[in-house]
Design a binder for these strands. Structure first.
Lengths: 373, 373
DNA sequence: ACCTTATCAGAAAGCGCTTTCTGAAAGCGT
DNA sequence: ACGCTTTCAGAAAGCGCTTTCTGATAAGGT
């Protein structure tokens, strides 16, 4: 069914039919309803490709993330979907499976689709050459009027951005853990190629240093950003001996894997080791034990990034929205099994008195404000 | 940059440029490379809309689900994405937020986009009029050559389908729980409008009846398919008094909510009440306690539904792939606190001896085969 | 009554491609 | 050397719309 058929049936011209259906110009009411009726009877469905071609615009946006199956991305995607639905936009979803090359290929595909906006969700890559290649692909798109907005990714991409307080959040977490009395830390870290990893690790490490605590290299174990990555990293850590009293997994998903590894090895959390994550993805509150983490408003971030992308007029410079970074203390952390001889006071926050382990077994979360910076 | 510009730069005709880039026909090698070079230099990106319009075909598929943020859908979507990436298809994602009207509107949108296939993920609605409206929208699409494939939805839609063993899985679960000695059950059920709910509830209830156990209506509490729905349903159940010894939540997500409600009310799982779910979404294995559930291969289901949609040639009749339904016993279920006076043997399976509560605290899952049917 | 201005329908020109159709050139058999 | 087929490039006709441009008609001003 083409618009031409509808027009003929309604006894009007093609142009009038188009105008009647789209409401771009005034059309006499009787003609409009005749066109509507004809379209209904014929079950007319416009051809979006023809529309896009003729009008040189589309109602689609592209969403590129590393893995929709990951709860972190799923939660953000949900926010994007909600915002898109409100604006009558169709979302084209791309999953890169964490391969930079795929990411660039998808940008190209979305450019071909003439997407109104391209949303990049998830950490950028440390490798500058990938980021440069990505920027090169994005640049002509932006110059041609395309909008780009990102979550958790900034280097070398000048685009509107929603940025989690990775550095500050990790620092606040470190301070909270120091305040509990921990001195022996380990970090289950993600791929060194991701900026998010670098930021969280740096924030954590710097705050430890400020508290006079060192994080030896052998206490930093790397692994992919998955449950299995966390599991393997935790196993590696345990195998190395010289156990820390507190482990920070740079994402909740990794923390979940670590929790499984600990359970399997008979290491009790938090009695033997305290464990903390980052992101506050759904469900970690219900873990065994509930996971201490740094909360990010994931769904809201999705809505925000869509809003940034759609913002008119285009600002001269890119807008950055910083979010989250709030520490949520739950039962997975407790004071270390053997407290240090002398409690050390770290700058900026006195030693806090917290309930005995397991912390907050009752189920109520304790929130710590994000650091001012 | 248009193809025309590329052709001119390469000193060939428009037609030759098109053929050189798409490889549809033999083109002399020197011309082909000249065209390629010109395209590269100009940073040519084809216009997918023009391509789709001219060739009357596109490389997109539509994926309609109730909520990408829900781990159940996210896991299936991940499978779809993987399969789509392998076939070089772009996925347009639609989230209905569980409103039937939205679902129909999205089908219409995807038709306008000339999607190669439309994938519907998630339960259908009991309300026949919605299903009829949906079928009416889908029908001309299929007649026009579109492909439709579904997960978990069948009534009145003749389409290829991946169907979870809702009925059989719930029955197998019921039997396992009966075998543990439970006689007092409750079900946290979803919206009565969803077929998935009806199937799981029926399977569970029928198997209970076969074991001589009745499920009184006041022990069936309805709520939305969300964590909050499960939470509220569990609260309602507890408020009614006359506590069961075992609760079946028709989805894992609801079970998670129930778990939170129980914890909050000081009801211990599994010591006071056993709890089981359905789906085996990621993370429920790590809950406190790990959740007994009926496992579904979610990601594989996503890959399968895509494969069904792409299958050539179109079979004369729709193909149905039944999956899952395997009971996974974890620590959230245990024998009832006060065992019945006389152990009752249910047909088809003797009373099983299972370890004392909490069951499988060690962390190893026990799998029960799906029933033969 | 006449000219100007506003309103709205129709004709037609694309949007950027694919693909059929046409024709030139080359290869081959006899 | 001739006509045959085969190979491959170019011309041109759309694909189904939107949108400018044009023109007809009605309304309003003097």
């Amino acid at each position: 069914m083409t618009l031409d058929a509808v027009a003929r049936r309604a006894g009007v011209s093609l142009a009038t039919a188009s105008r009647a259906l789209n409401g771009t110009t005034r059309v006499r009411e009787d003609l409009r309803s005749r066109v509507r009726a004809a379209a209904d009877q014929l079950g007319y469905i416009p051809n979006a490709h023809a529309q896009a071609l003729a009008s040189a615009s589309s109602n689609t946006v592209g969403l590129i993330c590393h893995d929709v199956g990951d709860p972190y991305f799923a939660a953000i995607a949900a926010g994007v979907m909600r915002a898109a639905a409100a604006k009558d936009l169709l979302v084209m979803l791309a999953s890169t499976f964490r391969e930079p090359a795929r990411e660039i290929a998808y940008v190209s595909t979305l450019r071909a689709q003439r997407a109104r906006a391209i949303l990049l969700i998830g950490s950028g890559f440390q490798d500058r050459s990938w980021e440069r290649a990505l920027a090169a692909e994005l640049d002509p798109y932006v110059r041609a009027g395309g909008r780009v907005a990102v979550v958790s990714r900034h280097r070398s991409l000048r685009a509107d951005a929603v940025l989690p307080e990775n550095h500050g959040g990790a620092a606040a977490l470190a301070r909270a853990l120091l305040d509990l009395g921990h001195r022996e830390f380990a970090v289950l870290s993600g791929p060194p190629s991701l900026t998010t990893v670098a930021d969280r690790l740096a924030g954590f490490q710097e705050e430890l240093a400020r508290g006079g605590v060192e994080l030896p290299p052998e206490r930093i174990v790397r692994g992919p950003f998955t449950r299995e990555g966390g599991y393997a990293a935790a196993r590696t850590l345990l195998a190395r001996g010289n156990r820390p009293t507190c482990v920070f997994a740079v994402t909740d998903v990794m923390a979940v894997g670590a929790l499984a590894a600990f359970r399997e090895q008979g290491v009790r959390v938090p009695e033997d080791i305290s464990l903390a994550g980052f992101d506050d993805i759904p469900l970690v509150r219900e873990l065994s034990p509930p996971l201490t983490t740094v909360a990010l408003p994931l769904t809201a971030m999705g809505e925000e990034v869509m809003a940034l992308a759609l913002r008119e007029p285009r600002g001269p410079r890119s807008r950055v929205l910083r979010v989250g970074g709030e520490v949520v203390l739950r039962a997975s952390v407790a004071p270390p099994p053997t407290p240090p001889a002398a409690p050390v006071t770290v700058p900026g926050g006195g030693a806090q008195q917290l309930s005995a382990s397991p912390l907050n077994a009752g189920g109520t979360d304790r929130y710590l404000g994000a650091p001012e910076r």
